[in-house]
Amino acid sequence: MAFYDGLFDSLGFRESCDAEKVDGSVNMADLLAKMKGEEVEAPWWDVPFPSLDNLHEACDALPRSRDFTEAVKDGFLAIKDTLKFVLDPLTQPLSWLLDGALYTVSIMPWWVVFIAIVFTAYKVSRSMPITSFVAAAMLWFLYIDYYDSTIQTLAIIFVCTFISVTIGVPIGIAMSRRDWLERLFIPLLDMLQTLPTFVYLIPLIFLFDVTESKLYGIAIILYAIVPVVRLTNLGIRLVDKDVVEAANAYGMTSRQKLFKVEIPLALPNIMAGINQTIMMSLAMVVIASLVSAPGLGVDVLRGIRALEIGPGFVAGFNIVLLAIMLDRVSKAALARINATQDV
């Protein structure tokens, strides 16, 4: 006898409840009760919460909790094909970019890549100490034979950051222009940022083939795009109102205002966002090794699976080193912009 039987009886729903009754379906609790061969009268204070399972016990027409999760799955599977049909071609360029970048770094001789990286580090940071640090770190990777996985990780980060910025900055600008867009996007960004990273691998695995590189590319971009969108929006909203008024008073078009005033003045914030985006790509590229992203993450994953403490630790240390490298270089660029712009 279930607790809520009385409720359905008194409301006169008994018949419609039992209409769907199937004798075969018994749940574990019923079985246990039957085995004991007795029905214990529950004390009055032991009121079960009217959850789906408890209500189902009293009325078979109501669904159980597992039917609910089942429905979520069915819903997803129902839209899966349409979603795949739309998203697949849209995201295909991402696969090409990632595969292209990975292929390029794999065929280039190590010294070309080395020079290119050190040169870029100098161009961006304009700082000798940081450039030397980058060079030393690269030599270390080469020396201990972690060059291949490091350069794969770097290639993926580079592609994903590039795409995050090219999509994220325009979204941020659009958000700064229209309050309703900001209200729409902020909860979405909050969700992307707070959703445990493993969780959004789940729908992606269903949507795309695990062998496709865009699978991890999308996961990284979804996670890493958040700060650049947020800070672009914020940066443009924080642009000095007086300067914008002056731009209007001198007859700038909204396009001129955007490129000659708003973006340059928001640049420190946008750069801070890009720095964060780079760091978050790195964090995600390690986790994305679960869905076949190559690079240092794979070494860590292998360390965990095979309990190889040595390679796992070294790969972990290399990730930290790479993180410091990327952070210092992008922060130096940010500091350079700040120096010329402090009002």
Binding site: D240, D242, V243, E245, A246, A249, Y250, K260, V261, P264, L265, L267, T340, Q341, D342, V343
Partner: peptide, 12 residues
Amino acid sequence: SMVFQKFALLPH
């Protein structure tokens, strides 16, 4: 043309 109290120059 206009001149502003807080100058409103383009800092960059």
